[in-house]
Design a protein around this nucleic acid. Sequence first.
DNA 1: CTTGACCTTCCAGCGACTGGAATGCCCATG
DNA 2: CATGGGCATTCCAGTCGCTGGAAGGTCAAG
Lengths: 129, 129
Amino acid sequence: MNIGEAAAQSGLPAKTIRYYEDISLIAPRRDANGYRDFTDSDVHKLGFLSRARALGFTIEHCRALLGLWEDQSRASADVKRIAAEHLAVIESKIADLCQMRDTLDHLMHNCHGDDRPDCPIINELANRE
Amino acid sequence: MNIGEAAAQSGLPAKTIRYYEDISLIAPRRDANGYRDFTDSDVHKLGFLSRARALGFTIEHCRALLGLWEDQSRASADVKRIAAEHLAVIESKIADLCQMRDTLDHLMHNCHGDDRPDCPIINELANRE
DNA sequence: CTTGACCTTCCAGCGACTGGAATGCCCATG
DNA sequence: CATGGGCATTCCAGTCGCTGGAAGGTCAAG
């Protein structure tokens, strides 16, 4: 099938699929006219990538996971290790963002937000020695 | 003072300070030899930027906040609006990441992580119809 | 034969830096 | 006065994961 159809079936934009070919995540064969021709297996891979990316795995993690998926003799420990590594990154991002949110929440709560210039948000950004 | 000293005092890398000048966030004057010469006021601005960035504000938000900081007749409502907008972005990122974390957590909990190939993490990525 | 929808490649840009090369300035020591 | 080391300067390229757009080729319908 053509790239448009593969895009529709996998949920990935055609541009993204071309990019994935560029970085050798997939390698669809070509028709005589140069058009990419995707098999069902290619589309399954794209779906796999789409779901892994939606879980926030980096492209390099996706590449590794794809390899493990295709390796029937993989050890589930290898998959779990990648997932754990990624989970740690996510947890850390969440912690950072929660910290920002709490600070902002606090500052906004103290800011009356009217037309007067006095503003604890600006003060906090300006003052901290 | 020189950029190294300004970097030490503001906590920002010299590279970042040069970048901030490039995009016109600051405009330190120059010595005869071409070296940037930072005033205390410049360094305060850099500190302001550093704290705003640490709270996750985009550069464009930082630019706006810096403008409001310097405007003695600002309305605190303007500051609060920017903060609220940013808070919404943060909340949404947190929600996305928590969703990922929960899914990953769940999958990892179900994966025995040994040397056998059977793996619910891979299955989830592969299978969802 | 033309139209329009698809496909191709290639180049540039996003945000916010960061690394590195090539070069210049300043100060202290021998 | 030469030299060395530690600063400073500019400019270019790379990061990550796409995304937009230009310029052109292909294909099926009317």
